[in-house]
Design a binder for these strands. Sequence first.
DNA 1: CGTCAACTTGACACAGTGTCAAGTAAATCG
DNA 2: CGATTTACTTGACACTGTGTCAAGTTGACG
Lengths: 166, 166
Amino acid sequence: MADIAKRAGVSRQALYLHFPNRAELLVATARYLDEVHAIGTEFDAHVMGQAGTERLTGFVNTWGNYIPKVYGVGKALMAMKDTDEEARAAWDDRMGAVRGLCEVTVQSLAEHGALSEDLDENTAADLLWTLTSVRNWEQWTQECGWTHAQFLEHLNRAARRLIVGA
Amino acid sequence: MADIAKRAGVSRQALYLHFPNRAELLVATARYLDEVHAIGTEFDAHVMGQAGTERLTGFVNTWGNYIPKVYGVGKALMAMKDTDEEARAAWDDRMGAVRGLCEVTVQSLAEHGALSEDLDENTAADLLWTLTSVRNWEQWTQECGWTHAQFLEHLNRAARRLIVGA
DNA sequence: CGTCAACTTGACACAGTGTCAAGTAAATCG
DNA sequence: CGATTTACTTGACACTGTGTCAAGTTGACG
């Protein structure tokens, strides 16, 4: 909080005039980033506006491109999850929304007969949701040293291999 | 530290007579768990003693069965990673060992012509390493509610689909 | 001119880690 | 047997970070 105040050019206490605590400041920041990057419009265009394997590609690319933009605040919220109930609820709520996108994506695959035969829709959504998690992005780009382009390429390949049927 | 001391039936300060700090206590606990569960022997038998896709199955099952046993201390170390340099080094060292197992597993697949044609060995190891991460185990079993058996089953399927060639 | 909103400084409580000093009690050794 | 050593105790303290509180400043606006 002291660091943030310094960077914002205000006193530490001024932050508490705008946000009740650290968790809500981070949540507000995340919401602000959503707005700035118009993530809702992006999803509408590239996910809800597509079907079958194109919807899958749209989801993977749109979400994959968004992750690095929210990684900073996301990492802070994830770190608070274990000790702060409010941070946990906020992060779980956001990831729940992503999980919802995974579900509709899988549904569209199923409708087009493109879902792998050995998977039910729920398991497929679980797989896609975890595959595209922020933690996996973190590991691939930070620990493995993948570029963003490599990340998107391999994530698309993995998603297809994991949940799309022959 | 206070909680651990309480559960151990000693004073908080007594812990500091045995371990210089929290990070080293956790690292020592992890090493103790390795010993108790004879993880080295397990890997020797089910990974190094196998080849090709059997080595892959051996690695996935052995490591997959070990994760829940070290999850407690692992979670604590992961939480410290961002602020404590020693914890970061300790955890990265352990995960580096797992990454090494992924490499030899992928190598064995390649030698038997079982590695997917569109992957180089390094990328395949990155994929397997991330797929089998503790974070993914956490998400699948805690958030998705998978049983341990389901986890192992789907992890094996995913590993095969992701890195084994036709 | 007075008031209000936004901010400041400075203090404090509280939790958690790590340090330090002094004391105790039991085992070990000469 | 007495002296020492080992393992532990109690209790204090420093330091960091979050969140709270009180009192004061400053500028805009009716």
